[in-house]
Design a protein around this nucleic acid. Structure first.
Lengths: 149, 149
DNA sequence: ACCATTTACATAGCTTGCTATCTAAATACA
DNA sequence: TGTATTTAGATAGCAAGCTATGTAAATGGT
């Protein structure tokens, strides 16, 4: 029998991710915050600064992906960079006041979408869902790390 | 408190989807089958033909996404199209013998990756995971359909 | 029969992800 | 000290997703 999408965890994960991202994009459109900006926004929401390397690690994306995201965020006036005084290769990234002013709104939108997505699940199922997703991610991350070595 | 990735279903879904897709790409590289080809490959694995519209529906992507995927598959010698005799706007898509010869291998790879991803879950948890994912998708699909009207 | 609408697909242009590769600065060590 | 390696980031080029829009064929209504 040929695989059906309903029984393929990979296909379902991709599908769910696209639906989340579409909804996020729709609801965040008026703020000028794109889905990929969110890990950066939340990591710097306290007003602090981080290097690109650290942002890359926290967003769990590859370095060139983060470089491109920061370039778009800079273009959109959401971040600025200043020289790292201790390392000339590196810059310290911070949110602009414009971006800082959007953090609360974005947080409300994200929370609402997560709530919508899980609205058919009871409290136990919601915890279970996040926990199972986390365990699946852990296995795949380990595999990824193995092959990257 | 600012959102953390571990408690955001959307972030976790995106993360899991990227890990699945990286692993798939790695393991399918020698076959010349890209992840996006798979819904088409499986839909046509019986040797039959389908229109682009029907393939779009089954893959749950937008029409221009499927148009681009079919273009790459054609470039790679995986599909061919012939005029739909009953509708001059439309073509009937079929797999080439080259692609048909890869179906079994691809199916084995996909099955293995799904098994790997779920290896830390017991049988009940695996069923639960797919079921919860399905319910989340259903809610988001409904929302998407609402807004599209 | 004719025009308006709908439908199937194509194209343009963008985001977000990836790998591969380059440059320049920092670090290690002989 | 001087070279070799490692590290931080940039860039090129591609895949795969999206929205908006265009074109041509099919359909529907008067």
């Amino acid at each position: 029998m040929v695989l059906t999408r309903e029984t393929s965890a990979g296909y379902m994960a991709n599908w769910a991710a696209r639906l989340f991202s579409r909804e996020l994009e729709r609801q965040l459109a008026p703020t000028g915050i794109a889905p990929a900006y969110m890990p950066v926004l939340f990591a710097l929401a306290d007003g602090g600064t981080l290097t690109q390397k650290e942002l890359t690690r926290r967003a769990a994306v590859e370095q060139p992906t983060m470089a491109a995201t920061l370039k778009r965020m800079e273009r959109d006036g959401m971040i600025h960079r200043r020289q790292d005084p201790g390392d000339k290769r590196s810059a310290l990234v911070a949110l602009t006041p414009l971006a800082l002013g959007k953090v609360e709104t974005v947080e409300r939108v994200v929370t609402a979408i997560n709530a919508l997505a899980l609205e058919q699940l009871d409290v136990g199922e919601r915890r279970q869902f996040l926990s199972l997703l986390g365990r699946v991610i852990a296995v795949l991350e380990a595999q990824d790390a193995d092959l990257g070595s």
